[in-house]
Design a protein around this nucleic acid. Sequence first.
DNA 1: CGATACGTTCAGTATTGACTGAACGGGTTG
DNA 2: CAACCCGTTCAGTCAATACTGAACGTATCG
Lengths: 166, 166
Amino acid sequence: MDETVQQLVERMALICEKEGMPRIGGRIFGYLLATDQTFSLEDLAEQLQASKASVSTNARMLEQFGMIRRVSVLGDRRDFYRVQDDPWEQMLRVAQGRWREMVNVFNEAAERLPEPAGRARMDDAARFHTLLIRECDALIDRWHALRRQEQADAGAEVPLRRAAGA
Amino acid sequence: MDETVQQLVERMALICEKEGMPRIGGRIFGYLLATDQTFSLEDLAEQLQASKASVSTNARMLEQFGMIRRVSVLGDRRDFYRVQDDPWEQMLRVAQGRWREMVNVFNEAAERLPEPAGRARMDDAARFHTLLIRECDALIDRWHALRRQEQADAGAEVPLRRAAGA
DNA sequence: CGATACGTTCAGTATTGACTGAACGGGTTG
DNA sequence: CAACCCGTTCAGTCAATACTGAACGTATCG
């Protein structure tokens, strides 16, 4: 494996681990991200020096988070994996789900707690996370807009040259 | 301890644990949040049924995250703790710091990676997190505005009644 | 200056959970 | 139908780390 790729893989492993994800999950994501290619389960296990069992489990987790996707290839029984088109949006959506649960917890506590001051704190927390969820939707929209812009710019490079030649 | 408080404490413990924080850290934060009171180290250890050592360590961690603060009381040698005025903003700021590091990692990889496609992915990732950081600043501003509004409304309740009586 | 109170640090313990190898099930090929 | 290929599941192992009790350093009080 290319050394630069490996560096990113290991960094990604540590970052993801700090976020509460298994280290190998971070490695898989980092590898698929840095190569932007499609790999079989066995390829991943070999390249990342992990057991197929571990890769299988972690790949499924990443798939459920929407950060990578399974690819089926005609005439091949194996599973292939590659990074999702927009993994970061998916990350945010998962986070939104967690925040929604927290809002429920806070709202429930805001009704039941004995002390008014504590209830106010819970209300505050619920409002904050509600705002967080709402603003995240807006952020995703902005991200899509920015991303379309990027891709339009990148895609325009070649056609522009053609136009110049015409 | 009140049962409702205890429920929130345990829920908060699990939530925080899932985010990669020690369980007792979550308990401390949840307890201070739900009671909105000031407690000594020993109080916390007793109420949360944990050792003073553990509470000491975790309280310092929460303090460094800006989620709780130490309170000193005149004529008392002990340390007291209470929840920070706006712990959620602090949480976001800590997250921003992590994202900044990630942007560095991505940018570095975007320059060094062998494959153009991989470099594009890294660039994409860096852009996303940069946007995330920027939008978070805006979010914090909105949160402050919303919060001022809340507090103004809450504070207005009594004066309004006075105004109505006048 | 000795005694006490308080918080922190540190070594040891216990628990969690990530990871592995092997067994299993489903499906395809000869 | 037998042999094989893939992926998943599961029991077992190992490492990481949260937590504790005890020792320590520091400051305050008699």
